[in-house]
């Protein structure tokens, strides 16, 4: 088994998307080399693939705020031709990707925390113990994520007309964060799936109308 680096590379690709190619490629290549060096160095010290994955992920996650700030410090890449002259605009095209970094990152972290809350809650429920995290804390996290998910869902639809891509991401992510908190009922997950399909279709329609104007 080899260390799982895919999520780290995915994140780097996400927050560098839409930047000047030289800046984008430098950051991607530099992190790629760093990952290689870390895996090589730690495997040479006899660490297991799971331990290396954990170390890499901790390094990655603790630096996410700096990645977001770094991204905000970068000058935006010159946009391609205006959408109106290009025909149908791609909702998630290069011009939109920069604005997606923050919502996608925040929702990915919220979903990761949500999964952790549910897994820890399930383990403690099975063991009838609170050896990992007090149940009260899990409940607060669960309620907080449920509220945040619903707020994201509402905000997504509210801004969809002006920012279709960001709106779709917020609506889809929010519906799944909220659905995750009540995962033992199948209905919320089905509702989340239906909302996701509806939100993406609606955003695409708005984007197409905008580009045709």
């Amino acid at each position: 088994m080899s260390p799982r680096l895919g999520p780290v590379r995915w994140w780097v690709r996400l927050y560098t998307a839409g930047l000047e190619p030289s800046v984008r490629d430098r950051r991607r290549d530099e992190i790629d080399a760093d990952l290689w060096d870390q895996v090589d160095g730690q495997a040479g010290n006899g660490r297991t693939a799971a331990a290396i994955t954990m170390a890499v992920w901790l390094r990655w996650l603790s630096g996410v705020p700096d990645d977001v700030f770094w991204r905000r410090e970068q000058p935006r890449a010159a946009r391609a031709e205006p959408a109106a002259t290009e025909g149908r605009r791609d909702m998630f095209g290069p011009g939109s990707r920069g604005a997606l970094v923050l919502p996608v990152g925040a929702l990915a972290i919220a979903i990761a925390i949500g999964i952790a809350v549910q897994v820890i809650g399930e383990i403690q429920h099975q063991e009838q113990s609170e050896r990992l995290v007090p149940s009260e804390i899990l409940t607060y996290f669960g309620i907080g994520l449920l509220v945040a998910g619903l707020a994201s869902l509402v905000a997504g639809f509210a801004i969809m007309r002006s920012r279709p891509a960001v709106g779709a991401v917020l609506a889809v992510g929010g519906s799944w964060v909220a659905g995750l908190m009540v995962f033992w009922l199948i209905v919320p997950l089905l509702i989340a799936a239906a909302i996701s399909v509806y939100a993406v279709r609606r955003a695409r329609r708005i984007a197409a109308e905008g580009s045709g104007a």
Partner: peptide
């Protein structure tokens, strides 16, 4: 025990 995060390190280096 832990290495400096990617984000913190490369942001500072730049």
């Amino acid at each position: 025990r832990r290495l400096l995060a990617h984000g913190s390190l490369y942001r500072a280096l730049g």
